[in-house]
Design a protein around this nucleic acid. Structure first.
Lengths: 213, 213
DNA sequence: TAGATTGTTAATCGATTAACAATC
DNA sequence: TAGATTGTTAATCGATTAACAATC
């Protein structure tokens, strides 16, 4: 486990989706071979860094030639697990939750949201972007019966921990959390916090500093 | 400029919103003083790191006592520029764009979305979460006249660069980009990319590795 | 072969963590 | 005063960048 963790830094993993997108475009155009230099230039990264990042996926390029585009795509998708198809439940059908339900790109990322949950009677029973909205208290049982392993949380901060508990009770092992709280989850459960305000903070600071100078 | 950049790492800045949220809660409860240890415990961070992070905002605590909650809140808000009120334009009234238009928390972050733009005739002229949807080709002129300095991009990847160009032409200086592309912007313009697929990649890798072991 | 490109090993840089002095 | 807490200086760790060897 430790060895696997060490292979490929977290920062590398975060850049992989950008590589993947670029490679898809390159493939679309019909090119078979690509160099780290080309990728670096397009994504405004360092070529050495590109090679290091790609190496984490296990792919090998050919000196003087470059990387084979489709092999690279496969390697990245496989490394990320995006070639499989994991089913997910989403909880919290507010603005953001609805937006995620409507986003069609997730299937290309190996994830399919198959149902949504909420506690609001006005939302339960409706369909949003073709997905049924079910009562939250059905989640635990359904997740167990359908063997769902992934959950997405788009409720408010004060409800998020409760929702996480419900998910864990249902056997969900990976939680993508958009609520601005850090969740308490048992050992072995993975929680990834997606905090939009962090990004806004960075932008704000850069803006403030720019205007200062 | 270099000196200012060095003060406070990017990683520190990203954690500041979490401190701010916790401090708001603490203030709500009526507590006036807080220690770095308490904050660290609540947010599952290291106390030394908390003190380092807080120091970047310029605040000083008192040995043996701790930090004054309201002073800390003010310091963080001021450091981030969240005590001011910047007006922003949003472009791309799809699922995500609509969600952001409906998010009421931005005003607490010093940002107010005052209008939305799109190229879809079916959306132009409508209101979404109380905000008018205007034609994109009005943006440049309006941004100039209203002195708007911040833009949010929630269009698809292929449209994002064009929208960025339009924003820059309108005098917008800070762009919060949710499209999965890295934007080309002139010197002096700040573009912050918010790439959700990076987060999903991290979660995916952790999941894959977990299931492997 | 020569040149271009990969991949590895070493050096640098930045961020986190540790040790400890300062102080209310 | 003594103990608790901040703040600073040093050490460690991880990630990026540089140098260079390997190779098609």
């Amino acid at each position: 486990m430790d060895k696997i963790q060490r292979v490929g830094s977290l920062a590398s993993v975060k850049r992989l989706p950008a590589y993947l997108r670029l490679l898809m475009q390159i493939k679309e155009v019909g090119r078979d071979i690509v160099s780290s230099n080309y990728i670096a230039e397009k994504l405004k990264l360092d070529a050495i860094q590109v090679r290091k990042d790609l190496a984490t996926t296990g792919i090998e390029g050919k000196p003087k030639v470059g990387y084979q585009v489709s092999a690279l795509i496969n390697a990245i998708e496989s490394f990320l697990g995006w070639d499989s198809n994991r089913e997910a439940f989403l909880v919290g059908v507010g603005n953001l939750g609805s937006a995620l339900l409507g986003y069609e790109g997730f299937e290309a990322h190996g994830m399919k949201i198959i149902a949504a949950f909420d506690t609001d009677e006005g939302k339960i029973g409706r369909q949003i972007h073709g997905k049924n909205v079910l009562p939250l208290d059905k989640l635990t049982d359904l997740a167990r019966r359908m063997n769902i392993k992934m959950g997405i949380i788009t409720v408010t901060a004060d409800q998020a921990q409760h929702v996480a508990n419900v998910m864990v009770a249902g056997g969900i092992e990976a939680i993508w959390n958009f609520a601005p709280v850090s969740l308490e989850v048992p050992e072995g459960i993975i929680a990834q916090n997606e905090d939009l305000s962090s990004g806004l903070a960075v932008l704000s600071v850069k803006t403030v500093r720019l205007l200062d100078s």
